[in-house]
Design a protein around this nucleic acid. Sequence first.
DNA 1: TTATTTTCTGAACACCATTCAGTATGTTTG
DNA 2: CAAACATACTGAATGGTGTTCAGAAAATAA
Lengths: 202, 202
Amino acid sequence: MGISERKEREKLDKKQLIRSAAMKMFLEDGYAKTSIRKIADAIEYSPGTIYLYYKDKDELLYDVQHDAFNQLLEAFKTKAKHKDPVKRLMQIGQTYVSFGLQNPELYDLMFIIRAPTNVDEELHKDNGEPTFDYLVDCLKECIDKDLLRMNDVQLCALQTWSVAHGLVSLDLRCRLKVMSADIDKSKVLNSAIESYVKLLIK
Amino acid sequence: MGISERKEREKLDKKQLIRSAAMKMFLEDGYAKTSIRKIADAIEYSPGTIYLYYKDKDELLYDVQHDAFNQLLEAFKTKAKHKDPVKRLMQIGQTYVSFGLQNPELYDLMFIIRAPTNVDEELHKDNGEPTFDYLVDCLKECIDKDLLRMNDVQLCALQTWSVAHGLVSLDLRCRLKVMSADIDKSKVLNSAIESYVKLLIK
DNA sequence: TTATTTTCTGAACACCATTCAGTATGTTTG
DNA sequence: CAAACATACTGAATGGTGTTCAGAAAATAA
């Protein structure tokens, strides 16, 4: 019978309704300031209903993160598709930094926020894995073609990701104030990631 | 008269009493889980009293951050004092990463946590400046002696700091799960920072 | 139509940061 | 010494938070 299938669909729809309302409010006001009550208000349900679809606020965050990682992956796919793997690597770096600067709240959700109940190890580790692999694949090609001054893919990926993430997250937490002021942030961050890639290539 | 001076002293003492109790609890339970009530309980005062010394919870955080930055600076001074600036740079990187891994909650306080009311631009920007300068000075010496493959001190400092911060903060947020498992974290992070410094030098 | 299952509600619970009228303590003045 | 004043402190109250759960409502099955 099709009823249970429709119900299944409706359940997913409602879950998405909650998720997209949550995402919107997370981006507008931040995760901390977005309460379950406010989300419930926005979608015109009672607070309790949200707990029928999500175990707790963290669980909701994880799902929103998943969407966010897909957004970043899409950005890579459209903006970092140069044939030359080294140039593609450069594009990946620039895309990453731009993404972070243009979507600060989203970036926060993905990488910086600590969900209160964050000790569960096994779950959610797949969040962001395909996105990370986009970088790994690119580096693998670079290294295979002997274009880099490093030869350990995993190590190189970690290092590259760290530069990019470091730049974005330091900026997002206003930790770049220690640097000389009156400079265009996005220019500096782009210079930094560019010169890093240049260090990396032979 | 010495009375007002004693009072001044007592005021500072109490402020430090609050601050050190707060720091201890922040490190044990994290910033979010440490409530003003609990701090007040620990020092056997009422919650209201804390607001006589600190405008709000953020203000307390900033003061604790200040102490924390001094701790990192001390670590630099004792563990990164090689005469050769390049070797010192390596020591700085390693010290930074070790510091982050060994004091995760402290690191969180310093760099990752977003204080709820965090829009005030001007204040607190001096927090951490001397510590950053320790890196800048080292890089300046490296560049003066023409030992690096970069020549913009500010840019280079930003990049180096980003690598180190990126490594630590990604690890602290369990974002390294996307990498192949069963590896010694601190080894990998140290390899990453070491190979970065090697990229940097001529 | 009635019984059963599913979905939803909203009050209640135990917390939180913060405020402020009132109390207690210490200091200065008459 | 006592009264006046200034300072330090209290703790209940305000308005928020995430989460739970008995009971109401709606949808489905019999």
